[in-house]
Design a binder for these strands. Structure first.
Length: 145
DNA sequence: GCCAACGTTGGC
DNA sequence: GCCAACGTTGGC
């Protein structure tokens, strides 16, 4: 099993939205490297659900756990002319995600950076803007335990 | 709102 | 293929 980190603006689609929906198609990824990671996903892989663009009240960080619930497939929003991410000329990919749980306590980016075990995570790297990135098993286990 | 870090685009 | 301009992301 592989581990991943999914980034979403908390104000746009949060872990609470995923909890409400139970399951959602993770669409709209329009970056080749992120797409390549989506293509590597397999059913049962676990994801850290990260909120970006945080506020002082709700800082950026990991807020929950999601699980890959389908094989990667063509992103339906890429061929939907009404979608803001409409881009039919290129091959974009999405996967279904299901809700697993919220963290009892969110782990903020600040805490990740302070923790000697966790600060090597990709998400702690300055300028890291990928919305999908791999996570080491040891990092996942420490955060998602 | 600012700005650094990227990725993408397009002229040449 | 180079690279400047531009757009976007996301921490602060």
């Amino acid at each position: 099993m592989s581990f991943w980190l999914l980034k979403s603006e908390g104000s746009c689609y949060s872990i609470d939205n995923l909890k409400r929906d139970g399951r959602t198609d993770w669409t709209g990824v329009r970056n080749y490297q992120a797409r390549n990671y989506l293509r590597e996903m397999r059913v049962g892989d676990r994801c850290l659900f990260y909120h970006s663009n945080g506020t002082p009240a709700e800082p950026s960080g990991v807020y929950g756990i999601a699980e890959v619930a389908s094989a990667p497939h063509p992103d339906p929003t890429a061929t939907d002319p009404k979608d803001e991410h409409y881009d039919p000329k290129r091959e974009w990919v999405s996967v279904e995600m299901s809700f697993v749980r919220k963290l009892a306590r969110p782990v903020s980016l600040e805490e990740l950076k302070k923790d000697p075990d966790l600060r090597s995570m990709l998400v702690c790297r300055p300028g890291q803007r990928l919305s999908v990135m791999p996570v080491e098993a040891r990092h996942f286990k420490k955060i998602g335990r």
